[in-house]
């Protein structure tokens, strides 16, 4: 195996969710028919209850457009889109040296996030989501240790 380009572009959570949906992860309630692997369903379950759930391409493009004036780093924008911070204190954790760079504009940014990006689903039903993922693999312990037992390549 040869890695030609380790970083061929970052994806937002929404893009990954969109990709999994396009593979048919959302349409198949039995989770057997679609060509989606059990491990992909686990990622799908995580993303569907995150802020990415209701985002659309238009939302994100609009947000990026309107954020240009703030001069945020790419990683910060990516993180804001993934987390969708709905209060100033959450922005402070994401944006480095927020106080110095923003001062009072933080409130403005929070408003922009709330206006442009759709809110995450209300109090998620996390138990269900995770349980379903476990059923998928057929045994509870196996699901839990999957990343741990994965082979290392490289």
């Amino acid at each position: 195996m040869k890695s030609l380009e380790a970083n061929a572009g970052a994806l937002t959570n929404f893009e990954v969710l969109d990709f999994l949906r396009s593979k048919g992860a959302a349409n198949d309630s039995t989770r057997v028919l679609a060509k989606v692997a059990p491990s992909e369903y686990k990622v799908y379950d995580y993303l569907v209850q995150s802020a990415a759930c209701k985002q659309t391409r238009e939302n994100i493009n609009e947000f990026l457009e309107r954020c240009k004036k703030y001069d945020l780093a790419k990683a910060e924008l990516l993180n804001i889109i993934n987390i969708r911070p709905s209060s100033a204190v959450e922005i402070y954790t994401i944006v480095e040296e927020c106080e110095k760079r923003f001062g009072d504009a933080v409130e403005e940014l929070v408003e922009l996030v709330e206006k442009v990006l759709p809110p995450p689903p209300i109090e998620l039903k996390p138990e269900e989501g995770i349980d379903e993922g476990k059923e998928e693999t057929g045994n509870i312990d196996g699901g839990k240790d999957e990343p741990a037992t994965g082979e290392q390549m490289g």
Binding site: A6, F19, E40, V43, P147, G150, Q152
Partner: peptide, 20 residues
């Protein structure tokens, strides 16, 4: 490829989620 890479960790690249 899915059999080889899916849900596996490649050192320094991370955990493979899907074949894009």
């Amino acid at each position: 490829l899915e059999r080889l890479f899916l849900d596996k960790v490649i050192a320094n690249l991370g955990l493979c989620v899907s074949i894009y």
